[in-house]
Amino acid sequence: MAAEIPGFSGIMATGWSPLMFIGALAIVLMLVIALRSFGKKGFKEGKFRADAFLSGNEPMEKHDVKASNFFWGFFEAFKGYYEKMLAIHTGFVNDYIFWFLFCVSLLLIALCMGVSLWA
């Protein structure tokens, strides 16, 4: 039925339909609410109740991680790549123009090679 109304049907044959997605989301939300209603009514926030259990160590003091420290492991793993990338991103105007001319010349060389192949 829904497939016959233009605009309401899925946009691909494999069937992504946003309305279906919203319906599924609503069902999941209802499930969450239902599960939550099973919880104990008399829960009180107290010491250590909602804290993370760090293998028996004393709970650490709260300190926030700065944004530039996020995903430290990722940057450590790809250190070589990022060093090269940052070396390219110099921020000098002359380099910007150099890269533009580089691309123009590459494109023109490719086109001229195409001409000689095609002719």
Binding site: D95, W99, F100, F102, C103, V104, L107, L108, L111
Partner: peptide
């Protein structure tokens, strides 16, 4: 040649790597 110049110019202005700086 005109095609190459036009394509490169417009690719630069839409910010394609490596002309994205």
């Amino acid at each position: 040649i005109a095609l190459g110049l036009l394509a490169a110019g417009f690719l630069m202005k839409c910010g394609a790597v490596p002309m994205h700086y």
